[in-house]
Simulated scan of single mutants.
Amino acid sequence: MDLLARSLREAPIIEKGDYHYFVHPISDGVPMLDPKLLREITIGIIRKAELEGVDKIVTPAAMGIHISTAVSLMTDIPLVVIRKRQYGLDGEVNLSQVTGYSENEMYMNDVYEGDRVLLLDDVLSTGGTLRAITEALGETGADVADIVAVIKKDGGSNEMDEYPVKTLINVDVVDGEVVITDEQGDG
């Protein structure tokens, strides 16, 4: 994860209240995303994730989409995007996302009882997004095969009680800079 580590060390930091937020192409879409970085991350996810018997990749909009699309293309596993717009389609599941800096209603379709899913996200910070999604998946009767977040921001209440989250790299923000705390991530 050489490119990922380097790009994180160079990431600008902004403050939203008490929250120190790094701006990165994987989590924010700026600066532009180098295809080599996306390829490195995709290969890292495929190597780390439990893919055996997975029926669907599930990801939240918007910043999980590019990562999950790349993994879907490489594995031929269909992709389900949890979105912020309600359509009222049959089987739509409503979930409430609460993070350290926002609250949103999100909506999921096309996940059913017995589906074995891989949950992918860009950053594990507060755990609010992943907790909301795993609760919704549980309500549908889906089986969570694995959860992978590209980046884990240390220091938050980001531990998932029922599901361990694998990460590619762990970071913290110290004195206005991103510090790599584990170049191998968790799991």
Rank of each mutant, 00 (worst) to 15 (best):
I57D: 02
K48P: 03
D34Q: 09
I46V: 12
D172Y: 15
G64M: 01
I133P: 05
D143A: 10
E105R: 08
E40M: 04
N104S: 15
V81G: 08
R9L: 15
G53Y: 03
I133F: 07
N170A: 01
D175P: 11
K166M: 05
M106Q: 02
E177R: 07
D34C: 09
A136L: 05
T126P: 07
D110T: 08
G44E: 06
N109V: 10
P12Q: 04
G114Q: 07
K56R: 09
V174P: 04
P25D: 08
P164D: 06
T129R: 05
G187C: 00
P60V: 10
V144C: 02
E162T: 15
I147E: 01
E113A: 15
V171G: 02
L95N: 03
D110Q: 10
L137H: 02
D186T: 13
T126N: 03
E103T: 14
D18E: 12
N109Y: 14
E103V: 15
A132H: 06
T129V: 03
R47Y: 09
G185V: 04
T59E: 00
G91V: 06
L4I: 04
R39Q: 09
D146Y: 02
A61Q: 13
N109G: 11
S96W: 15
V30W: 09
K84I: 10
D161H: 14
D90C: 13
F22Y: 08
I45N: 05
L95M: 12
I45V: 12
G141T: 01
R85H: 11
L120H: 03
E40G: 00
T59V: 06
G176W: 01
N158A: 14
D110R: 10
I180G: 10
K16G: 11
L73I: 07
R47V: 11
S27W: 02
T167L: 02
G155W: 04
Q97C: 14
A145C: 11
L130H: 00
I41S: 05
D186I: 11
Y101A: 14
